[in-house]
């Protein structure tokens, strides 16, 4: 029992670290990221552990970018997206996942502007509008990532998960 718990904690930490490393690796490309795809894959394969890895990931990002209102929103966005994926995990078409991820990318700026409504609705609106080009890039990037890498990574993760040492 204790062994399983340690294995689970280790997996959550590693998945979170992977999310963080992948975000840093592509951070030179504005709003092109593989985190969305990995969150889908991790949640599909590891369920609750995938969701918890989002907490590790968001916690780690604070070391790079610092804490702020954005950080709390970031936490809600990624954990919330993972919970949504968990609900939809039976979807097996990567084209459908590409559409869902693209829609998520398109909504990203709008979701991020929500907390600012309580500060100033006008500020929230202009914050969202000024970021629309980045949301469009995010949308296209998420779609492409899922179409190109979704299926091969899904298969690879399935194989890794079924190795004897990784079976629960």
């Amino acid at each position: 029992m204790a062994k399983l718990k340690v294995q689970s904690i280790t997996r959550i930490a590693l998945l979170g670290a992977l999310l963080y490393a992948s975000q840093l690796a592509l951070s030179f490309l504005p709003n092109v990221e593989i985190v969305t795809l990995l969150v889908v894959l991790f949640t599909k394969h590891f369920g609750k552990e995938g969701t918890l890895s989002c907490f590790v990931y968001v916690f780690l990002t604070a070391f790079t970018w610092g804490f702020g209102l954005w950080w709390a929103t970031y936490l809600v966005v990624w954990a919330g997206y993972s919970l949504l994926v968990n609900k939809l995990r039976k979807i097996d078409s990567w084209l459908v996942w590409a559409l869902i991820n693209a829609a998520f990318g398109l909504c990203f700026g709008a979701i991020f502007s929500v907390p600012y409504i309580f500060v100033s609705p006008a500020y929230a609106l202009s914050y969202w509008i000024s970021g629309i080009p980045f949301d469009l890039v995010h949308c296209a990037g998420n779609f492409a990532m899922a179409v190109i890498l979704g299926k091969p990574l899904d298969l690879a993760l399935g194989k890794i998960k079924n190795l004897p040492q990784n079976r629960k």
Binding site: L95, V96, L99, A103, L106, I129, I132, D135
Partner: peptide, 21 residues
């Protein structure tokens, strides 16, 4: 058909947002 409708809706929303911007 569902996937095609999804793509069309997504593109339409993206184009609308571009005009808003």
């Amino acid at each position: 058909a569902g996937i095609i409708i999804g793509i069309v809706v997504l593109v339409a929303v993206a184009v609308s947002l571009w005009f808003v911007y």
